[in-house]
Design a protein around this nucleic acid. Structure first.
Lengths: 301, 301
DNA sequence: TGAGTGTTATGAAATTGTTTCACAATGGCG
DNA sequence: CGCCATTGTGAAACAATTTCATAACACTCA
């Protein structure tokens, strides 16, 4: 036999209610059961837990030590169990997010700030570095939400529409292309294109414009941070294509020009990929709602 | 079913050894048993503890919470168990001491100081206030040792001889009785006697001298602290009778005189009353030995 | 894609552990 | 001493855990 929580509860009750008989009542068990239980425990621990010289039996020093253990440990168990119950009823949970699109930090951060206020018990995190294998990670429950603009048919995964955005051309105000009303694929020839450091197929400029038109820019420079991209563009070290919610920030600055790509513009749609089972969780729905609101805010600035 | 330590050990092993099968080996149990165990636990907790999408199954968020509990709680249990084993093999234990004789603090404190060094895991305490019912308290295991000078025949209790001492008369050097070579009962007539605040039968002066001689002092003043008794005696507010180990301290001071009681002196013996079952415990024997050594030291000063 | 391997799940039977029942033993108290 | 309240004990009943045998599943590699 091993020491078990049952024993701790018993010790505690015997101490609390002063005696086996009363403790037995409290625990909805017979006095005999407790007697056997304690005997077993004393055999296994090899120490006397109770002083039996006096009649309502009392804790021995060893018994008091065990009581101390009980009083340390039982509340910890209670705490865990109550976290489970808040997990069950959807008040707490995990919301680890993978973002495929590099610029999504811009709107995601404010969304998460708001989210944390409404759902303080949900463990929120952004997991960068998963950009590549995000959807498998979603299926394996390594993450709980993937922000993506390429929906796929996957079993157990649903793509919820978040919002539409435009891929927008950005250049320095003094750039030759600044005079054109809109930008075509051919305009990229001979230019230095600044992009996020991800593979071409994940970049809107390439997948939507340059690859179909078979145009190759003169050079590509990969930069991690949006702010740095804009800096380089302003100082005429290259041109770039960014989502409109990023571009709004610089639209009214006289340093930059922004132009639509092609005469009609290139519009894309962003999705939240979520495991079907998570779809009904209230905090998941709220995160999606918050994202939409935030996007609208950014785009109407 | 309830959550039990077994489950915590299981969770921990599965996490540690990466998978049910390996954990089962470690715990000397079949993989099937663990599978059943976890199922039961998940049913009862109402949450999924593991992610089964991938093959060696991994902890879900709830499972990680449970693992955290396991890692908090299991070491606490270990600690308790190891205290039990040191209790079993006699390295630790409890040594709560009741002293009937009020002046015994004087030699007991240094004894306990030494004792703590040799037996750091023994819980030592002096319980004053039990002076009256000390022996019943010993039988009920409320205390573990009683210092007493009145041995009785009690079942399960043994009286171990500690050392002999003399009850010694103390007065101010300027006191009229200071001129006598020894003090008799009759000398107390008309005097103010300063004693500890306990009943007469527990005071050597009364039980050994004044009661048999049917002598009543003019007044009795009860004082708690030995140092205060000596102070009062020095300033001629009364006379007192104290054990020799206390008196040695003032013997060579010109403020006091000390004299034997009666021509032959009154010698008494101090005992340690101990429950028979505790007699063989090594730290009990050592405490008795230390007490004897300390007494010898005090008396040969 | 399918065979092979390693892993987890499941149901029934066996085993082990716990509780109950009935009553014995013991201590406390008048 | 005798009564009442309390704890202890052994056998039987009951409940749980574990095992066994085998199915189902997921990953790997050809």
């Amino acid at each position: 036999m091993h020491i078990e929580f049952r024993h701790l509860r018993t010790i505690k009750a015997i101490h609390e209610y002063g005696g086996l008989a009363r403790a037995a009542d409290q625990l909805n068990i017979t006095q005999s059961a407790l007697s056997h239980q304690i005997k077993g425990l004393e055999d296994q621990a090899g120490v006397e837990l109770f002083v039996r010289r006096s009649k309502p039996m009392r804790l021995s020093p060893a018994g008091q030590r065990l009581l101390r253990l009980a009083e340390q440990v039982l509340p910890q168990v209670e705490a865990t169990l109550s976290e489970f119950s808040s997990l069950r009823d959807g008040r707490s949970g995990r919301m680890h997010i993978a973002i495929e699109c590099h610029a999504c930090f811009e709107w995601l951060f404010p969304v998460l700030e708001g989210f944390r206020k409404s759902w303080p018990d949900v463990d929120v995190d952004i997991r960068p570095g998963l950009a590549f294998d995000a959807l498998p990670a979603l299926q394996k429950e390594d993450v709980d939400l993937v922000v993506s603009s390429d929906p796929e048919e996957l079993p157990g995964v649903e793509f919820v529409e978040l919002f539409d955005y435009n891929a927008v051309f950005v250049a320095s105000a003094s750039h030759p292309l600044a005079s054109k009303p809109y930008i075509d694929a051919e305009d990229f020839r001979g230019q230095t294109l600044i992009t996020y450091p991800v593979e071409r197929s994940r970049l809107d400029v390439f997948s939507q414009l340059l690859i179909p038109a078979k145009v190759e820019p003169a050079a590509i420079r990969q930069v991690e941070l949006t702010a740095v991209i804009l800096l380089l563009v302003a100082s005429n070290r290259g041109i770039s294509v960014l989502p409109d919610w990023v571009v709004r920030e610089v639209k009214y600055s006289s340093d930059y020009v922004t132009r639509p790509l092609t005469e009609t513009g290139i519009t894309r749609r962003l999705y939240a990929a979520i495991r079907s089972e998570d779809m009904e969780k209230p905090f998941v729905r709220e995160l999606v709602d918050l994202a939409r609101v935030e996007a609208r805010k950014l785009q109407s600035q």
